[in-house]
Simulated scan of single mutants.
Amino acid sequence: MIIEISIHDFYCQQHRLPLIDVRSPGEYEKGHLPGATNIALFSNEERAQVGTVYVQQSRDEAVELGYQFVTPKLDWFISESRKVAVNSPVAVHCWRGGMRSHAFAEHLHENGFDEVYVITGGYKAYRNYVLDFFAQPLQLRILGGFTGSGKTLLLKNLQQQGQQVVDLEGLAHHKGSAFGAIGESPQPTVEQFENNLFEAFRQLNLQQPIWLEDESHSIGKVKIPIPLFRQMRQQMVYFIQLSKEQRARHLVGQYTVCETPELAYAINGIAKRLGGQNVKLAHEYLGQQKFYEVALLALQYYDKAYLKGVQNRNPELVCMVPLPDMNHEDNAKTLITLVEKYERNKTHTV
């Protein structure tokens, strides 16, 4: 049988159904449900041709052209779908839950798939569901600190000690600075970043606090959803403080595995703010492989920029946390104790 299911009910199932996305590869690459398998009804070129015929001629002629494209692939659709769902129900979606997904579902049902679900509203309904998700109130704990403070490693240690964490920079494939793309895989689209972010939150208990790193709205080329970003800005920031020397050494360990031209390119990316003389000096240090000195120069700019952002916040929502060194395991314990004490006091005060 073929059953229509809302995106909400799809996610509320105890055991998530295998999912087939029948949109074109281009649509899928722009953004898709994490875990969905793309078995495209039309190639990118075929979809464009069908759309042109629909607009310039008629719906019936577009449907006829679509059948011409699809018919040679019918056996392939079945064999690929069996790889996705072996002896189990399967869900299917297209852009709006219309002709493509229903036609695909009927074909599966006619060829041995007993239980096929079609997501009503398709990918468009899913996208609305994702954006609505971030509008709900969330319990957030925000970790701040100057560049080179090892916030990502601290978040990992918080997670190892039982805290809920979402790694924004990990999902963005970017460390959030001019040097942020170095050593990272290509960034997802803005849309896919939002989808992946939703999936990360969905795995957590939303009734309990969730740690995020303090970020600007943009992380490289992707953007944090506005409703989530506004909530982040309204929460207490636990700002860890470490010496510039320790942070510079951390940056050396993080970036000197990269090629020198990448580092030189990144330095040029902050040239206007760093100043001509400092840029020249940074390139000289880089040529001499004096990476520690390069890091100290870069921190002159980043510390000023970050401090300006902190000063623009409500001072009552910034908690400075001095730390002696980069022992991330001990620092995570210190931070958990401090935050839980603060939140208990806040509850008693209210």
Rank of each mutant, 00 (worst) to 15 (best):
L74M: 14
V84I: 15
V118F: 07
C94F: 08
Q277I: 13
V53K: 00
M1N: 12
K346G: 02
E169C: 13
S101H: 02
F146G: 11
G183K: 08
F69L: 04
L19V: 14
R273K: 15
L297C: 04
Q68T: 15
L41F: 06
L242C: 00
W95P: 02
N327I: 01
Q246R: 11
G176P: 01
Q160P: 07
G170E: 08
F134C: 09
Q161M: 04
G220Q: 09
T349M: 11
L251W: 07
Y67W: 12
R344M: 10
P227C: 05
A91F: 07
F193E: 11
T260R: 12
Y255N: 04
T349K: 12
C94Y: 11
V53G: 09
D132C: 04
K333S: 01
A282E: 09
P188W: 04
G275N: 08
K290H: 15
K175Q: 03
D114G: 12
G309F: 03
M99N: 02
H328A: 09
F113E: 14
Y117D: 07
I270G: 00
V310R: 13
A91L: 04
C12E: 14
M99D: 04
R202D: 00
R141S: 11
N128W: 10
E215A: 11
V237G: 02
D214N: 06
W211V: 00
R127S: 14
H328D: 08
R141A: 02
Y265P: 01
